[in-house]
Design a protein around this nucleic acid. Structure first.
Lengths: 186, 186
DNA sequence: GTCTATAGGTAGATAGAC
DNA sequence: GTCTATCTACCTATAGAC
């Protein structure tokens, strides 16, 4: 773990807790027991930390989604796989996801455009899967947007739940999440 | 609409867009075409705006939940009612909900304790309803926490979806949301 | 109800010593 | 790799005139 990576990790934890704008370079430095000026020997600035965190996890989601849509499986199976990789990525990138969800609007320049575009393409891929399922007759013919929103909002906020999960096994969680989101609660 | 209410409304819109910490009193004043100092003739400070927004909607949710748990209906019917009032409150208090979800940690003093307590009691009431449904056999015997999390995370982020909803009738949305969350998508 | 002026503090970031 | 010192800009909030 390089010093730069340490800084980013400490910053990510603080960003998750209070949000990007409420965390100062002095806060990050204090959490590492150094002075704020020392941070600049390793990073260009606060903005670089945010961009690193968000772009990293946005690429993870994009790649996982591209993998799923390339497979020759049913729409329902694709959604099951999406739920699965959301849980996997959440376990490994909880702080990055917090930044992606809550602080993407504080990204500047080309990185912001890039992340917004990845997000839109991600949603469009998900929407296509749902529409395919409805056409096939395997998914109930609701408004696709209601389904998309409902599933995605649960998956995107999984990171908030990562502590309570605690002792719960990831594979059991995946099974339960699939049952709940796809087959309902009754 | 008093001048104070105007300020709170304008601030709420900016808070929703960028978050409490990223919005300055100068931003709020500029959006009203006045100077920042003029705001203080109507409000005590930035913190009062946040507290007003969050406490107002937290009380709305608490009262709606108390109404539901007092009714002599089944667990499933109670959850249907909860989905309903979340949609109603979201339509009328989208900006307040954004602040409650994303900026509650920036509340200071007794108001923060109060809001956290209301949130915990709300979740506990919801959890009890789910457990009752499982005991009655009307709800599948998952881990109650997975159900609670899944439904609540969708309902809490409804405010993000309030624009796309657009032309969609509220009652149709309620019916679709109930079907999706309770009866699944297959 | 709004203004100008300003106080007192904190922000991100840089220069240069060690 | 970290420090002290510092710059410039912005922050919340107040005082007092109109």
């Amino acid at each position: 773990m390089t010093r730069k990576q340490e800084i980013i990790q400490v910053a990510a934890s603080l960003f998750k807790e209070k949000g990007y704008s409420a965390v100062s370079m002095r806060d990050i430095a204090q959490a590492m027991n150094i002075k704020a000026a020392s941070l600049y020997n390793h990073i260009d600035g606060k903005q670089e930390i945010l961009a690193t965190l968000i772009v990293e996890v946005a690429i993870e989601f994009t790649q996982a989604m591209n993998q799923v849509i390339s497979e020759r499986i049913s729409a329902i199976e694709k959604i099951e796989k999406i739920i699965g990789f959301h849980i996997d990525i959440t376990v490994n990138y909880a702080e990055n996801i917090a930044a992606l969800n809550n602080d993407w609007m504080h990204l500047e320049g080309e990185e912001r455009n890039s992340v917004v575009k990845m997000r839109e393409e991600y949603e469009e891929n998900f929407r296509s899967i749902i529409k395919t399922g409805i056409k096939e007759g395997t998914i109930k013919a609701h408004h696709p947007e209601v389904l998309l929103f409902s599933i995605l909002s649960t998956l995107r906020t999984l990171y908030l739940w990562n502590e309570k999960r605690g002792k719960m096994d990831v594979n059991i969680l995946k099974k339960d999440m699939v049952t709940t989101l796809i087959y309902g609660i009754v």
